[in-house]
Simulated scan of single mutants.
Amino acid sequence: MHALIIDDSRTMRSILRRIVVDLGFDVTEAGNGQEALTALEDGLEPDLCLIDWNMPLMDGYTFVTRVRADPRWRNITLMMVTTESEHGQIVRALAAGAHEYVIKPFTADAIVEKLELLGLAAQEVPA
């Protein structure tokens, strides 16, 4: 499985990378939505995109709408990971086609839990 992490913060990309690599994902990083969209147009086929909202050149919301407008990318799971915490913003992102929404700051467990709900991480079997 492959994850595309889209965030203008190198530190945040590193944190998210560690979480998803531990789940078995290969990772590609992009510093903004335009860079990520270019990667998709160049043939990158991620199973998952973890997307910040506030970025230069192209924000995460615009990235989500562009991805959802193109049938080539209909099977990509999109998860917003952002500081945008207003209910209206969350509703807007989900209506645009994001599958999940995580508000920063977050724990690794919160990301793993969302990925489990999406079927992208193995759920631990209780002992």
Rank of each mutant, 00 (worst) to 15 (best):
I111A: 00
L117A: 14
V21M: 10
R18A: 13
E86D: 14
R92W: 00
T107D: 07
M12K: 03
E100S: 14
D7E: 03
F106R: 01
H99D: 15
H99T: 06
H87D: 15
H87L: 14
V102L: 13
V64Y: 01
V27K: 00
L117C: 12
V20C: 05
L120Y: 02
L120Q: 03
L48C: 11
R68D: 07
G119V: 07
L94F: 08
V21I: 12
L44T: 06
E84T: 09
E113A: 09
P126I: 10
V27A: 10
V64E: 06
I90V: 09
Q34S: 11
R18W: 10
R13H: 06
Q89I: 04
A127Y: 05
T82A: 08
E29Y: 01
E113V: 06
T65W: 03
R18D: 14
I76E: 02
E113Y: 04
N54V: 12
R17P: 09
D26C: 04
I15S: 05
G97W: 03
Q123M: 12
S85H: 15
D26H: 06
E41R: 11
F25D: 14
L4S: 08
L48F: 06
T107M: 09
D59Y: 00
D47Q: 07
E35Y: 02
E84W: 09
R68N: 07
L23F: 06
A36L: 05
A39D: 10
L115I: 04
L50C: 11
K104L: 03
Q34R: 12
I51K: 02
L50W: 02
T11E: 06
A36F: 02
S85I: 05
D7Q: 01
H2Q: 15
E84P: 07
L40E: 10
G88L: 09
I51W: 03
D7I: 01
D70M: 05
P71S: 14
I76L: 01
H99R: 14
V91K: 11
A30F: 00
T62E: 13
I76Y: 01
T38V: 11
T11G: 01
A93M: 08
R17V: 03
R10N: 14
V102T: 07
L48Y: 02
L120D: 07
A110I: 08
E45C: 10
R18E: 14
V112Q: 05
I19S: 00
N75F: 03
V64G: 01
I51P: 02
S9C: 08
I103H: 11
R92V: 01
R17I: 02
R72N: 12
R66Y: 04
H87E: 15
V27R: 03
Q89M: 13
A98I: 01
T11Y: 01
V27M: 07
R18S: 14
L120N: 05
V67D: 06
R72G: 09
H2K: 15
K104H: 03
W53E: 08
